[in-house]
Write a protein that binds this DNA or RNA. Structure first.
Length: 423
RNA sequence: GGAGAGAUGCCGGAGUGGUCGAACGGGCAUGCCUGGAAAGCAUGUGUACCUGCAAGGGUACCCAGGGUUCGAAUCCCUGUCUCUCCGCCA
């Protein structure tokens, strides 16, 4: 959530940044400031009236103590009208607060100054492309056919037991999943991230804290009976650990990692995008999260990008790094890098990681703060990244590593799989 | 799921209608003391918002939300959570 105070002091900057999201930023900024002014005035009126009532109450207490009953009663009569008035003023204040909050809650984060303008994914900026594209023969198979041939994944069984987008992984397919999860978790802990195993359902406060609510309400599975949301990413429970927390500056950066299944309704997806492992309702992911000092957050974003790039390199997967344009960025992000691996048999790029800096946008919602060197309480910055999401890694791995003799397992995974070929 | 007890500041723990943002103790910070430390002594130690150039002033917050009252941490109602006992159970 943006801070009215910041908008007031840096209006031109915020408007310029928000404009990259293709919004009428000036109108939004004006509206926020107008509602904030109204809120201040309403609070002032309420505070003053309340202050007067408090003063009278103290006076009555004093008179009672001294036994001056008549005077106390006279004063008490004065309060009746005041209470009525205060009630109205309080309602004004609350509705002014609500109006401001409701607007702020739906305004996305202001993109970083370096974010390219643009409306569609085609306008994302390619930062770099790494690795060799494998030479594929014409009869190279897409991963869903390889998965069937080697009996690694059963999509139809998933449809039977649950529905589309909930595959079964079997045998070496299952073992490969487990190997990737362990490989990613080990890499993260080696890089200094503390491993967590987290709840897979969260309450509405947590959903709000990281920005999924109200923005992505329809995209999360919701358990009505208990008013809980299935997590769409480990980011939600991990980051919310620090909701309503004030850290010491020396605690920063906080580095956390966790493996979880992720649940996404993916309402509105269709066609080749959802074929095979390309888009699932349930998938596995290892996430890395950091809580950072505001001065260090972009440095840390680079560090996280390097971590993710390192994983892809070890897996021997060619990838490109994208800096997302304003139109393609998530609601809460100030700057997002996507990693896409090149899936040789499908001849397309598949997103396998999204790594973002949220600046203080989430922290403001979470009330995640720290005490700086001067003892001042300030909002921290939050970051996170997929490191990595499994299904498309598996898709690319199967496709790119297929040979007439079977599918070759990358060296770095062999200690985890216990086999080096799928035949 | 049933019965009971409880929820107070960084922690422990008072407070059952009036000046309580909250006694007392611990912790922590700063100062004095010391060669240095410990002990001792002194002072300080929440968050948010409003107002003010500032010093300061105001409002709210004692789990959450309602209510009673001139006035609520204290009384009433609802909810949440924790603990104990019973039941059920991987």
């Amino acid at each position: 959530m943006l801070q009215p105070q910041y908008i007031r002091e840096n209006k031109e900057e915020i408007i310029a940044r928000l404009t990259r999201r293709n919004l009428d930023a000036a109108a939004i900024a004006e509206n926020i400031l107008r509602l904030d002014d109204a809120r201040k005035e309403a609070q002032m009126n309420f505070d003053n009236a309340q202050s007067e009532l408090n003063r009278l109450s103290r006076e009555i207490g004093e008179l009672m103590k001294q036994g001056r009953k008549d005077e106390a009663t006279a004063q008490r009569e004065k309060t009746t009208a005041m209470k009525e008035q205060i009630k109205g003023l309080e309602e004004n204040m609350r509705s002014a607060e609500t109006a401001l909050f409701d607007l702020l809650a739906t305004v996305p984060n202001a993109p970083h100054a370096s974010v390219p303008a643009g409306k569609t994914p085609e306008e994302n900026e390619v930062v770099r492309t790494v690795g060799e594209f494998p030479a594929m023969s014409e009869d190279a198979l897409p991963h869903w056919e390889l998965a069937a041939r080697y009996k690694l994944i059963d999509f139809e069984l998933g449809v039977k037991v649950t529905g589309a987008g909930f595959p079964f992984y079997i045998n070496k397919g299952a073992r490969l999943q487990r190997a990737l999860i362990n490989f990613f978790l080990d890499a993260a802990t080696k890089a200094g991230y503390t491993e967590y195993q987290v709840p897979l359902m969260v309450n509405a406060d947590s959903g709000f804290g990281t920005g999924q609510l109200p923005d992505k309400d329809g995209q999360m599975y919701y358990v009505t009976e208990d008013e809980l949301y299935l997590i769409p990413t480990a980011e939600v429970p991990l980051t919310n650990i620090y909701r309503d927390v004030i850290l010491q500056e020396s605690d920063l950066p906080v580095k956390m990692t966790g493996y979880t299944p992720c649940f996404r309704r993916e309402a509105g997806s269709y066609g080749k995008d959802v074929r095979g492992l390309n888009r699932l309702h349930q998938f596995d992911k290892v996430e890395i999260v950091q809580v950072a000092h505001p001065d260090k957050s972009y440095e840390i974003l680079e560090e996280m990008v390097n971590h993710v790039g390192g994983l892809l390199q070890q897996l021997g997967l060619p990838y490109r790094l994208l800096k997302l344009c304003g139109g393609d960025m998530g609601f809460a992000s100030a700057l997002t890098y996507d990693f896409e691996t090149y899936s040789a048999a499908q001849k397309r790029w598949l997103e396998v990681s999204s790594t973002s800096c949220f600046e203080s946008f989430q922290a403001n919602r979470l009330k995640l703060r720290f005490k700086d060197a001067d003892g001042k309480t300030r909002l921290a910055h939050t970051l996170n990244g997929s490191a990595l999401a499994l299904p498309r890694i598996v898709a690319t791995l199967l496709e790119n590593n297929q040979t007439p003799e079977g599918i070759r397992i990358p060296e770095c995974l062999v200690p985890y799989t216990g086999f080096d070929w799928i035949r």
